[in-house]
Write a protein that binds this DNA or RNA. Structure first.
Length: 424
RNA sequence: CGGGGCAUAGCGCAGCCUGGUAGCGCACCUGCUUUGGGAGCAGGUGGUCGCAGGUUCAAAUCCUGCUGCCCCGACCA
């Protein structure tokens, strides 16, 4: 891709209404533009990053044996009435009517739909265990959307649902999914923690949250300094009858080992053991050997769009985003210095551009007739992991200037090392 | 929903108090000069001043109502 054709959408100034760094940078780097409160357009660069996140999630989900499906965003409200959640969810559920005056809602989650689907799809216990997942747009009419895509009303989510014959099976499916989550967040290069959590409106028994550590996080997490004990402070607080969560700092850990330390986290994943809650209420009955059973269900969510913001919270400097390589929108940028001055420079860029493409390196060639500083700044704010600088200065030497985003200055490398470095 | 703030060009803002031709910087377009860290000069494009009503000869500006957006709180797989 050449920048002369790419809709970059970078901006020099911070938007006045963005408070946290990831929101500011997502707009300045041209990842998103706001449409309405909590509703965003994803521009080309942002969409590419989002797709990288999706691809990692998809590959680990597939690897775990889960099967991808796609469920509708629009759901009949009758299913929510049947499950009893229409009142429980309240106004966060966006309800509307079609031309026949039938009541529908925009799906904030899909337990009802998937359970209903499986009523016809799963005809025998021999088909269990099964885990189905989708990556899809959700809508929750949040009381107060904020911080860009961090807490938006419309957002991209991976949600998975497991069905097992019994509790032991559910434990297995749950731990398989937990392992898949660990792989996913590792590959996403996030600094995260797994904590015990409140299962909230989804219901069920055990539940754990995956939190990206960041000062801008909206959740308070408590960790023991001597053991692996970790819990959402909100939940611990409920157990301790509503005291100030911050007062937990320094208190003895409930597991008796060490004292509690507090940190803020961004919830990017949540896994639940639902049990029979939905299978019973929606009457998902499956034939087993000697009697019908209600399968033990689990559900597993990951906020894909939120991960983009969370990654930026952990990876930025005063110049812009510092994407970890697996998330970067491109592998490398070629900055062409003063394109109009010297055809040889352009020819060299063209040659490199083709070579990168042959090596399956996703390359962005900044061929714009702009001053070098403008290009450097643009490539830095969007967080290109590598930039090759091509200008008259180094053209003759036969070496290449390769600048890593995290480094102050470029280093001179041979052609062979250039490709090797970028692919590493 | 309670409290606070904002709404004027794609972005950032001034003008409003004291009514009288809608402005500045950045971005964008054209030309010339420049060229290794956000260039200079000259010319240019782009606005129902959030919406509706009112006062007035005249409203971005004064009055009333509404809407949208942001922040704090409550809430939140």
């Amino acid at each position: 891709m050449k920048t002369s054709r790419l809709i970059l959408g970078t901006q020099r100034e911070n938007p006045s209404d963005a408070e946290i760094i990831s929101h500011q940078l997502m707009i300045r780097a041209g990842l998103i533009r706001q449409v309405s409160s909590g509703i965003y357009n994803w521009l080309p660069i942002g969409k590419k990053v989002l797709q990288k996140v999706e691809a990692i999630i998809r590959s680990e989900m597939d690897n775990s044996g889960a099967q991808e499906i796609l469920m509708p965003m629009v759901q009949p409200a009758s299913l929510w009435e049947e499950s009893g959640r229409i009142d429980q969810y309240g106004q966060e559920l966006l309800v509307f009517f079609d031309r026949h005056e039938n009541k529908f809602c925009l799906g904030p989650t899909h337990e009802e739909i998937i359970t209903d689907l499986c009523k016809n799809l799963i005809t025998s216990y021999k088909q269990l265990p099964i885990t189905l997942y989708q990556i899809q747009t959700k809508f929750r009419d949040e009381i107060r959307p904020r911080f860009g895509v961090m807490r938006s009303r419309e957002f991209l989510m991976k949600d998975a649902y497991s069905f097992d014959l019994n509790k032991e099976g559910l434990d297995r499916s749950y731990s398989i999914m937990k392992e898949a989550y660990t792989n996913i967040f590792d590959r996403l290069c996030l600094d995260y923690r797994v904590v015990k959590a409140d299962s909230g409106a989804i219901g069920g028994s055990d539940s754990e949250e995956f939190h990206v550590l960041a000062d801008s996080g909206e959740d308070l997490l408590a960790f023991s300094d001597k053991s692996s004990y970790a819990i959402n402070a909100e939940l611990l607080n409920e157990l301790n009858e509503g005291q100030d969560p911050y007062s937990l700092d320094g208190k003895p850990s409930p597991d008796g080992k060490g004292v509690l330390k507090l940190k803020k986290g961004i919830e990017v994943g949540h896994i639940f053991k639902l049990g029979k809650k939905y299978s019973e209420v929606l009457n998902l009955r499956i034939q087993a050997e000697d009697q019908d059973i209600f399968p033990e269900m689990g559900c597993y969510g990951i906020g894909a769009s939120r991960i983009v913001a969370a990654s930026i919270e952990q990876n930025h400097d005063d110049k812009g985003i510092l994407w970890p390589k697996p998330l970067a929108p491109f592998d490398v940028a070629i900055v062409e210095v003063n394109p109009k001055n010297n055809v040889k420079v352009t020819n060299k860029c063209s040659e490199l551009y083709e070579q990168f493409k042959e090596h399956k390196i996703d390359v962005l060639w900044d061929d714009r007739d702009k001053r070098p500083g403008v290009k450097f700044n643009d490539m830095e704010v969007i967080g290109m992991p590598y930039t090759v600088i091509v200008g008259e200065r180094t053209l003759k030497t036969g070496e290449y200037e390769l600048k890593e985003r995290v480094d102050e200055k470029p280093k001179l490398v041979s052609h062979q090392d250039l490709v090797a470095n970028i692919k590493n």
